[in-house]
Amino acid sequence: MSATLTKQPLTTERSSSYAARIDHVSKSFGRPGAQQQVLDDIALDVAPGEFVCLLGASGCGKSTLLNLVAGLDKPTAGSIDVPGGRPALMFQEHALFPWLTAGKNIELALRMRGVPRGSRRTEAERLLGLVRLNGSYGKRVHELSGGMRQRVALARALAQDSKLLLMDEPFAALDAITRDVLHDELTRIWAETHVSVLFVTHNVREAVRLAQRVVLLSSRPGRIAREWDVEIPQPRRIEDAAVADLSVEITEQLRGEIRRHGQH
């Protein structure tokens, strides 16, 4: 059950030992004296190419943690190291820019990465092909369905060519059918790109469907309650018995964590 995957010093290249290291990170908000602790001593490594799901009820600080890893906020204590440069981040909302076409949204990310003008178009088309949206280059964001928007958002995140992809409940707002299809897509793209994924969700089944490792956070403050290595072979389906079994186990634990908050 332990998830320390980086024990032996196998390579000299520092960047290959982990894609992200969250080193005893705590985070509090508010003024000194009236502080609220959101995260308490989180220690977590994401190995290169690994798919980790962060699971927890509301108030566990999942999104706060993701913001810290993304560099959008600073931890109160501890440190975060992302050797591969600025991680890509995908939100629950697609966050695509409505004044640009699908293709141009991707090209903006390429441009910010420093890709020369001449090769941006080709690269954007390739990424759209990767999320199976060939032919949507010139589409406006509002002309795309919810699932298509999230796929463009995924393509834009991949355009950053980051070693680490952070996903903040990216499929939570989608209907069940679309979400199911996007799970398949994400699994396929993850296997193709070898990107490391840190995926935040409150959906236990989703976590078990996708992840190699599920990390359960307790709430207020967020602490790592338990971890599971998910050894069910891919491609998994959300209906698989093995997925269901592990989901039951994790849900029990999650409910236990939540119940603690009802007792004073």
Partner: peptide, 24 residues
Amino acid sequence: MASTDTRSPGDPEPQHAASASPID
């Protein structure tokens, strides 16, 4: 938890192979 995973937790060529192999 199924046991068909081919990965050993401390595999030196760590996650790229591990990530692809369960699918295959």
